[in-house]
């Protein structure tokens, strides 16, 4: 898949996953890589950027299994941004699906 495209989609996935509950890095990455093939480390730079842009806040929480975990929580700003992205995504996929439908019928 195109790298730039994947980056955008990854952003959407992360935001969606944080909408209902706070999660820590490893958990987020697992959820995504269960569905899409990604290199797991690529999520962290993205998390950094979105945090810096004010869409997430972070906090540390002790873990019984190892080092303490950094949890990500969606901010109000992040929620609004997610809404925008979802609208874009819907428009985009509808458009592509429409093209596919027409393309397939023509053959």
């Amino acid at each position: 898949m195109n790298v730039q495209f994947k980056k955008g989609v990854l952003e959407l996935c992360v935001l969606v996953l944080l909408d209902k509950q706070d999660r820590y890095g490893y958990e987020l990455v697992q959820k995504i890589s269960d569905q899409i093939a990604i290199s797991e480390g690529s999520v962290y730079p993205l998390l950094r950027r979105l945090t810096k842009e004010g869409y997430f806040t972070t906090y540390l929480k002790e873990s019984s299994e190892g080092p303490s975990r950094k949890y990500y929580a969606l901010t109000e700003e992040g929620r609004t941004y997610l809404g925008d992205l979802l609208t874009d995504w819907e428009k985009f996929t509808n458009g592509v699906n429409q093209l596919i439908k027409e393309g397939v019928r023509d053959e």
Binding site: G25, Y26, E40, S42, R48, E65, G66, R69
Partner: peptide
């Protein structure tokens, strides 16, 4: 970022995942 990645690697290794799965094929690119 190094700390966060470290805790990811710890957990991944506990689940028996190789580092390539996490940083992709090329460390430099990552």
């Amino acid at each position: 970022i190094v700390e966060e990645l470290e805790s990811h690697l710890v957990e991944a290794e506990q689940h028996g995942k190789p580092i390539e799965k996490i940083i992709g094929k090329s460390p430099k690119d990552y």
